[in-house]
Design a protein around this nucleic acid. Sequence first.
DNA 1: TTAAATTACGCAAACGTTTGCGCGAGGCAT
DNA 2: ATGCCTCGCGCAAACGTTTGCGTAATTTAA
Lengths: 346, 346
Amino acid sequence: MRSKPATIKDIARKLNLSVSTVSRGLHDHPSIGLTTRQKIKATAAELHYEPNQTAIFLQKGTTQTIGVIVPELSEAFFSTAVSAIEEIANKRNYTVLLAQSHDDEHLEKHLVEKMKNHRVDGLLVSVGKNTSSYEHFEKLKQYDIPLVFFDRIPIMPNIHYVGCNMETGTIEALNYLLKKGHRSIGLINGPSTLLASSERKEGYIKALTKNRLKFDPSLVVSCDLTEDGTQKALQELLANKRKPTAVVTFNDYVALYAIKYARELSLCINKDIEFVSYANLPLANYMQYAPVASVEQFPFLQGHKAADILLDLLSQKMRNQNQQTAYYKIIIESQLIERAGTNDQD
Amino acid sequence: MRSKPATIKDIARKLNLSVSTVSRGLHDHPSIGLTTRQKIKATAAELHYEPNQTAIFLQKGTTQTIGVIVPELSEAFFSTAVSAIEEIANKRNYTVLLAQSHDDEHLEKHLVEKMKNHRVDGLLVSVGKNTSSYEHFEKLKQYDIPLVFFDRIPIMPNIHYVGCNMETGTIEALNYLLKKGHRSIGLINGPSTLLASSERKEGYIKALTKNRLKFDPSLVVSCDLTEDGTQKALQELLANKRKPTAVVTFNDYVALYAIKYARELSLCINKDIEFVSYANLPLANYMQYAPVASVEQFPFLQGHKAADILLDLLSQKMRNQNQQTAYYKIIIESQLIERAGTNDQD
DNA sequence: TTAAATTACGCAAACGTTTGCGCGAGGCAT
DNA sequence: ATGCCTCGCGCAAACGTTTGCGTAATTTAA
């Protein structure tokens, strides 16, 4: 058992043919005679020959790889989106080079650099929540590497992205809570660097305006999406003169942290205070006290669309259609999901 | 702004030097004069030159990449292990090519093939729960690609692996439940293709034997780790003449499904029936009814160790130490974690 | 002054594949 | 018999980098 895999040269040597004949024979090129092709194939099988992708990539100037950077793979949202991306990529014979930034801007920059060095053909990114500068993304344009953002989108000009309409989702959430009788509704928002945060706030304001209610800025609080940050945010809301009877949280994890803390303060969940979240993760099905509703953001669809767009950009590039100045800005409508049989305290 | 990145050839042409001089200059080779080196570096910066990793990989016959295949990234256990692997890999300047098999044997085979075609230097695998044949792993030996299993380990000869001692963890779990007064304890086990399943069963039997209790095979039930399979398994246990008052579940997800179903059957959790699980995931902190204890399996440590072993094998290989016949079989001791203040029904 | 040693570069091959172009042999038409 | 066409192969370059070995010029020592 030889230590090195067989190459075309080995087959050529064994059959006393040239390397180019063997390469063509393996690819069923019509200029190679049938018997010669058959001999080549048989010898390839015998030597367990497998093409070396690195050599092919060098020769073709493409790596047939797309890079994907997400903040945290353990978040079902991101791993769902990634599963969708993998599905599309597999269908189009692309490899996915996956990395997680752990919401660390420095690591995110390093990962973008590494993706560039690996000459990924294109890149899909969900930005880290703490990322506040985007030169590392700008630099990719110099290398002509197509880039599509999804879910968490930076506030940058001239970009492709797939996102969810958080504004309308927020409006639905507010309408739902207002219909339930709530008049003082808090919002635990995310970092202001995220478009998603400003969208949520916009939706919140629009919903109040539409219902002829006054917007009280002190009921909208930012947090860093950590458990500690969430506690502080809830504390701030509960200390408000207009103590909220309902809170919309940035996502299910924030809801989970907020609910846990509310219980520690001896609040009766779904009586003293109700929660609505974003993401509608399966996690909530098993939570002790789940939010009464959640805004579905269709991560699988977002991942799917982002991958589609990227591969479309790649195929345009291959066809040398550099006249692309239009930017994809896909917004998927969100959907408020009311939880059936929200847990009451027994 | 040129569409293609600059290469060493461009620098060479611009400075009227040879390609080899430029390559050596970029690497501070002592045979290149200082002024020449400085000129080369300045021109490289000016042209935004960045080395092409594909070319380097071809020339060096290594990809500086390790492949990692796990069943499901959304499981915190696997994503934690992957974070540990990434940490080690980054330190040693390796890229991680990550893929998820979704417990699908066919997809797992395809991913192994793709990893091989990409000439990953080594591979880390946590086997899919439904994988029942392992030729796809055997074939890697032909290509001299080092392979280390972690967490879910196939029953195969001559392999490297890092696992957790499920036997002693199971014994601790049984001891804990026996000490609490339970005498009829069920076990919802996993697929029999997994070593982890037989280890759990062995631990279960040994614990009973050590406590001079009879082993009743009908109290050990296999399931496929799905929600549906878990329901059936619990049903079977509850229909037992010796209806268990405690159940040890294969992992936290199985516990979650089992508890949900038990509640549907109007059983009082932690009164009529208690659960102990494996994995000790953070998820359980937010569960409505969490298992009273869980066996910690240290996924970060497992990932860390698996990556260490693989990189050690790779560096032995680079030093041409083919005399390796010893196989790494690392077992990390598990640890039963009793949950503080297990939820009582209020 | 001459020979030997050292310095600073360049040539060419290699890694493994693809592919444009060319050539020799055989077949067919005139 | 000769010229043209087609078939079936091979040569060589290329992709972008690294590196073994060689050479010319300069410096140093005898």
